[in-house]
Amino acid sequence: MNPPIFQICAADPAVTALLGTGPTRLFPFGEAPQGVQLPYAVWQTITGTPENYLGQTPDIDSYTIQIDVYAGRGSEARQVAAALRDSIEPHAHVVGWNEESTDPDTGHKRYGFDVEWHVSR
């Protein structure tokens, strides 16, 4: 019931060149380990809706997911975001670029964007 973001991105050599393998540092919301190596990214579902029809059950779900990249430098966060974007766009649509910021507790740079993903059931 979730978009296949990890499967798509972890299979992309440009993404794994930046986020590694074993594990690929792309985590569901709230699951990034404490002290994880930079850069890394997290994703979460912002909203989702089934494609409802009269007379039949939905055959597709639409999700808006937010992706946030954390890195030591802003340029590095942008580079990872671009690799993720390039990996995702053949499968889904980027629908928004979110703010760039610095985490006040860690000093990590953050770059985020939103994706609209349609998932067949």
Rank of each mutant, 00 (worst) to 15 (best):
G107T: 15
A14S: 09
G74R: 11
F6W: 06
I60V: 13
G48Q: 04
T49K: 01
L54D: 10
V42G: 05
T102L: 04
T64G: 13
I60L: 05
P104Y: 11
I8R: 00
E76R: 11
A17R: 06
W43K: 02
V80Y: 10
G22D: 13
P3E: 10
G20A: 00
Y63T: 08
Y70S: 15
R25S: 14
T16Y: 11
I5E: 05
P104G: 05
P23R: 02
V95T: 07
P3D: 05
P33Y: 04
Q44E: 07
Q79N: 15
T47M: 09
Q44W: 03
V15R: 01
G48C: 02
T102P: 04
N52R: 03
G112E: 07
E89L: 11
I46Y: 10
T47P: 00
D86F: 05
Y53R: 00
F113P: 00
T106L: 12
E51Y: 03
S62M: 03
Y63E: 06
I5Y: 05
P3G: 07
C9R: 05
P90W: 05
A83N: 02
G22K: 06
A71M: 15
E99G: 15
D68W: 03
C9G: 04
R25M: 13
P3F: 05
L26S: 08
F113I: 08
V95C: 11
I60R: 02
G112R: 07
W117C: 03
A14C: 00
L38M: 14
G72Y: 14
